[in-house]
Design a protein around this nucleic acid. Structure first.
Lengths: 153, 153
DNA sequence: GTATCTGCAAATCTTTTGCTCATCA
DNA sequence: TGATGAGCAAAAGATTTGCAGATAC
């Protein structure tokens, strides 16, 4: 897999996006293209609000709720991704020890685990350019036992 | 570090909590104890709402905003932790390739990176009991270059 | 032509805040 | 007693939804 430190070819990404939409039975509208292009042009992992304020400049009538709806639709079709794994509700933990999480993508349950082999691993060299690590954290996303059993029926 | 697969001793944790509050100059109130105890008793990483509905049973006048305020205070003093690293605003990514993130805890910027050495690592055995992994994901939390330079003046 | 999408407005949900009274140290 | 915290109510911020008109295929 190619690293994306170099500028991605946005128009090519948009072309692929259009194809993917057709494949998925999604209508290709100017709003959807604008939302996707804005996301593809940015390396800042923007919020819905930020995407909206960026695209209103060229498309003044686009509404924020269309941006939200578009993002949700594209997420559901796997065209884009959300950085957070959990829905927007704060979740808290009285365990302040260094530990990691297994997050169930179906029921949003969270289980703690420890992983000394990971803790011993040396971060990749390119990280030094990004900043100073305070906490290395692993999240395994998947189906928990209960949800898997349910799914397999 | 001890694994917490066995039931933690909640009253001992509450005792430590009381000491920690005194150390930090925080008043020890019944509401704060109730919030902390509820969190310590749970292994479900509950939300503010869930903590509240749990403690109103024994303390009917406690308000939800007190729970929020208490959680915020305890977070600020490092007594508890929030599972998510980012504030409650959805952040999106057009890069659906397998990759990891460096998240700045000061400015919330996010940088992508790739890490084949991690991808090659075998998950700990205890994970099998938890469920089926779909995506292993690493998040390095720390200060990005810009924020670090700012902090160092 | 028709199912799907957009824009608008309003609603919902989560979290924060100002104020006043109560309480812990 | 004096600073800090709690409760109430209202506000703020993020996201979702119902509906009527518009548009992609």
């Amino acid at each position: 897999m190619m690293s994306r430190t170099s500028l991605p070819d946005v128009s090519q990404q948009v072309d692929e996006f259009v194809l993917k939409c057709r494949q998925e039975g999604l209508k290709v509208t100017p709003q959807r293209i604008a939302v996707f292009r804005s996301l593809a042009e940015s390396d800042k992992h923007p919020s819905a609000e930020e995407i909206h304020s960026r695209i209103v400049e060229e498309m003044p009538t686009v509404s924020l709720d269309t941006v939200y709806r578009t993002l949700t639709t594209l997420l559901e079709h796997g065209v884009i991704r959300r950085v957070e794994s959990l829905p927007n509700v704060g979740r808290f933990d009285s365990n302040v020890d260094h530990h990691h999480h297994f997050v169930c993508t179906a029921c949003n349950s969270i289980q703690d685990f420890y992983w000394p082999d990971f803790d011993a691993l040396k971060p990749p060299a390119e990280i030094a350019k990004m900043g100073t690590i305070q906490q290395p954290y692993v999240e395994f996303r998947g189906l928990c036992r209960a949800c898997k059993d349910l799914a397999e029926g």
